[in-house]
Design a protein around this nucleic acid. Sequence first.
DNA 1: TTGTAGGCGTTATCAT
DNA 2: ATGATAACGCCTACAA
Lengths: 324, 324
Amino acid sequence: MPTIKDVANLAHVSVATVSRVINNKGYVNEETRDMVLHAIDELHYIPNELARSLFKKQSRMIGVIMPHMTSYYFAELLEVIENFTIEHDYHIMVCNSKDDWMRESIFLKVFQQYNIDGIIIISNTSRITDYQNLNIPIITIDHKLSEMIPSVSSKNYEGGKLAANKLAATGCKKILHFRGPSVLPTVQARSRGFDTVLNQKNIIYQNHDLDFKSPDPDAIWKAIKENPDADGIFCDSDVMAIHAFQALESINRRIPDDVEIIGFDNIEMAHLFSPKLTTISQNKEFIGRYAVETLLDLINGTQPKKMHYQVDVDLIERETTKKS
Amino acid sequence: MPTIKDVANLAHVSVATVSRVINNKGYVNEETRDMVLHAIDELHYIPNELARSLFKKQSRMIGVIMPHMTSYYFAELLEVIENFTIEHDYHIMVCNSKDDWMRESIFLKVFQQYNIDGIIIISNTSRITDYQNLNIPIITIDHKLSEMIPSVSSKNYEGGKLAANKLAATGCKKILHFRGPSVLPTVQARSRGFDTVLNQKNIIYQNHDLDFKSPDPDAIWKAIKENPDADGIFCDSDVMAIHAFQALESINRRIPDDVEIIGFDNIEMAHLFSPKLTTISQNKEFIGRYAVETLLDLINGTQPKKMHYQVDVDLIERETTKKS
DNA sequence: TTGTAGGCGTTATCAT
DNA sequence: ATGATAACGCCTACAA
């Protein structure tokens, strides 16, 4: 690997001059610039980012912590994040926390070691401990770490309301809500929205807590069999909805005539099924972009206008609900 | 951020001594070690990895290039890769090539800039150009870049044979093969295995090329409708299989009685459908681990025993094929 | 307009 | 057993 010194030698100038041309900074004669450029070209010189980072105390790297990478929602988020970081000439170091805060805090250390410029945390667990005395900008997706740390997430409360209103409008009398772990703020928000509407309208409902990563199919089957009079189902993820689907089919209940289903996320698979799944869509594209751009602003010293941004969700009506 | 110098000052020793204790290298008195450790603790000192990397010319970072991140197969691969790199105290910089070799070659430059220690490339396009004069160890997944660059992939040829044999054994007379782009080596291998068996047994088959990332549903529907006599379907991905599924259902063909289906990959969703999908399973866990460990060997100077490792595939018989 | 030199935080080679 | 000190590759006052 050629260094800036090699270039300087070949171009018969000092390293300072070379540095000026590669950074387009300070005065430099057109002719000498050409010579330098020529030398750079000839040697296939690429500036060493580590040396640069060491000096500038910033690395053009963004750390990303995710609870896992194999669920579609997270994978798409990651894709969007990578997209926009690259666009701004940043790169991402990706870490899988597995929802384990021990791992998380190790990653935080690693990020410091590498002079990471900013951190995006997608997480469920919300431990505030280590984040406080970390002087690296952070933005979180899908949960609030503290009032002081900016976040972005879907309007989960609205999502819950949207689903409840739809189900109510089509005449459901008894609804099953298969939700995520109720300790999660996102789940709580959805539930609150959902319950509020249903209580208002005096519609009966039941909540069942399930794991997001791999919801237990048996629990879903059991709940469905035990409630043959249920005529509406709301799931906190599309994957849960697919499970509900299978259970319903196995006992010959027609969808949406006997039972309606609404999912959450709008993953790609959602419209591969037949009947196609009605679902609450999360705008992952927007969330990812907002996270990256806000973080970059933070890195450059400008505070976000909104500390906790809430992104609109949409009810995507497909074939598992009746027309209202 | 405290530096090694701060620690040295606080412990009343030289930076050299501090360096010795944090690296467990060279002689250092027990008492002074304690003092240093104490100082480290008090200052919450973490060694700066960039400075280290600069000196050692290695960064403990692995670069990962993937064609995209939202398909389940790739996402799971990434998860496994992250898992094992972390286990060996390495970290990953992830880049999305979008199957674009221009982007790929930019990433290669970036990797050099960061003194990345090794590269894992999951890719379809195989351009050898830039890789040659790159003196960073590389391993590729799912395709051979050149004879000299180690790779790992599934036994795609065997996978094709497995599917063909199963379909033949259950009495299929006319088979549709929905495959990936036939320019891809993986697809070619599967086709060769598949065709070989079928030709031998004089079974009729048709190939249809589709995109992996988002296979055109209409093409699948069209092929299925135009071939009402087809009684077997082999798909190069489970997602394609799901599409075939829907098409078949829409024209009231029973699975597996009228038509059998075999997919490829064994993604998590594959057993969420009913009937559950029979498929050729790729051992992503093994592939990912092998890639990481072989790359680490390469980094440490030991050549792999096998230049191009082929991983076993399995036929997972579920409900979309008849018992044979 | 250009060059000199010190420093970013570590490690490793010398002496001592 | 410990301490100076010269790298690693780059950037930026400051001087010229």
